[in-house]
Each structure stands twice: as C-alpha cells, then as structure tokens.
Amino acid sequence: MATTTTTRSFLQAVATEEVATPLRVVQMEGLVILKIIKHCKDHSPSLVTGQLLGLDVGSVLEVTNCFPFPMREDDEEIEADGANYQLEMMRCLREVNVDNNTVGWYQSTLLGSYQTVELIETFMNYQENIRRCVCIIYDPSRADQGVLALKALKLSDSFMELYRSNNFTGEKLREKNLSWVDIFEEIPIKVSNSALISAFMTELEPDTPVTQCDYDRLQLSTSSLMERNMEFLIECMDDLSLEQQKFQFHYRSLSRQQAQQQAWLQKRRAENMSRRAAGEEPLPEEDPANPIFKPLPEPSRLESFLITNQISNYCNQINGVAGQSFNRLYLMKALHEE
C-alpha cells in the first residue's frame, strides 16, 4: 500500500515538473552588477556584451557570475576565436567552482536604444539551447545621473511563437491580440550578496554622509541628456513615418489590385453571358495564372513595433529625467529662498 502511494507521488512529481513555473524574479549577485558595470563603462561609448552564468531555481533565475566577451569583429577567424574564448573561459571558471550554466547574456546600451531585431535574434538563439534565459541591459549613459539603470528582459512567449512562424501581418497580430507592449517582458531584479561580502561592505563603508551617488543625482545640468534623448526620439519618429509610408504604399497597391480584379471579373462575367447566349460552356470565374490574383505580401509589422517600443522607451526616459529635474529645481529654489 505504502509503495503504491509513493509511486503515485513520484508520478505526480514527474507530472507536475513538466509544467514550468513562469520566471518571476532575476536574482543578481552584487558581484555580477559590478562586473557588468565595469565592463560596460570601460568600453563606453562602444557597446559590449557578455555572458551570464547562474542557476535556474523554480521561478527565480539566479545570476551568480558573468564574464565579458571581447569586442565583436567581423572577421570570421576572429569569430571562431571568440567561440574558443567562450569555452576556455567557462572551463577556467568551472575550475574555481563558479556555476557553469549559461542563463543569458548582458549588453550595454546607449540611452535605452536596445530594441532591435538583432536583440530578438540573439534571444531566439539563446532560447534554442536554454529553456529559460534573460538579457540584462545596462545603460552607462544614465549612470552619470546616479541611476542604476539595470533591466532584465525576456521575450514574451506569445511573441516568440509568432516570431518562429515569422508572420507579422495585421490579421495574425489581431488574432493573437499582441501589441507592441507585449514584445518584451521586464522581470524585476533582486540583488543578493553573500554574508561575507555583506560584512566586508559594512566594514568598508565610509563614514562620510555624502556619497558619489548623491553628488551625481543632485547635478543640476541635465540638458545634454535631454537633448540626446530628444534627438533619438526624433530619429525614431522619422523611422516610424518611413514604416508608415511602406504600409500606405502597400494598401494603395492592394486597393489597386482589387480594382483590377473587379474589372477583370466583370469582363469575364460579360464574356460568360455572351457565351451562354451563344450556347457555349462558360469560362471559370477564377484564373490563378493571372498575375493580378497573386496575393500581395503584407509588409512585416515587426519593425514598426520595435520602433514604437523604442519611442515609448524614450518617452519614459524623458519623463524620468524631467521628474528628477523638477525635484532638483524645486529643491534649489527652496534652498535659495532660505
């Protein structure tokens, strides 16, 4: 009796394990944060990437270590070298007992302009090998404002499904009820440190009440950041209007084609009418060989979705920076009046 219950519970355990719990939190070690920041900052303003190592525990993805990739080169030989580098690094890190399991990658970005097709492609590549992976995005340009601009992203499941079928027509999107907001999912980041590090940092924390972070945050001039944000926004707007033109062009040719089809059909019907009057067999009302019946391919909406995402990201950043500036301005006013 007892054995049957245990086997059943085993079976149940196996059955329940099949259902993957959704990823809720990315738990990063302070070490990883510092490593990412150092790598991205050292090479700023060029953009860099690196690999995240860690463990996948239930709904939490633990990122316990990472290593940087060398700067990307187009040369094929160097690319093979890069793969070697990756293997070598993993092997070396395993030797000192670092978690040897890839959980994603990190990359730096300039003012949050990361929503590109490349990112999605990289993501799909990673997703093929690792069931659960994240992309950590760090923005060194915003660090000067005293902001820790770290973000953990993943592609939403519905988007991945659609991307695999590579079908971004308006109809499909409506069917799936997918809008541009649903491409990326942001996952909340938790920071954890070992007790040893916590002890060291408490010991080493200086007594001074003001830190570099405070200086950075209370810096009054943000105009350069705003300007660049605006510039990027305007560029994106141009891109978006180009995309829109593509669609307009598509719709115009679509309606032209439909008009042609209609005309052809009328002609055929008139012809059939006369044939019937003459007692002949009517011709079919469809002619697949005719080029005007070939369906026009609808341009993919992926690009415009990404641009829209980008724009909304810039808007958010502008809001954030403006909010901070308001704070600073009122603070300064109050100080001045005192």
Binding site: L34, K38, K190, V191, S198, Q324, R328
Partner: peptide, 29 residues
C-alpha cells in the same frame, strides 16, 4: 564605483528591488 551603485544595494544580503530614478532622488534629498 561602489558609491555609484550605492552601499545600500551592496551591503545587504538581499535587496528586493533596485531603486528607481525618483526613489534614488528622494534618498539623496
């Protein structure tokens, strides 16, 4: 560099959330 990230984030064993723009601003003020 550690001050830039914030000792509050680095010295605790678990931090549930990275402070956002405005929260950081509030702390500084």
């Amino acid at each position: 560099e550690a001050e830039r990230v914030g000792y509050d984030t680095l010295k605790a064993t678990t931090v549930d959330k990275i402070p956002s723009d405005l929260e950081g601003m509030e702390a500084s003020m």
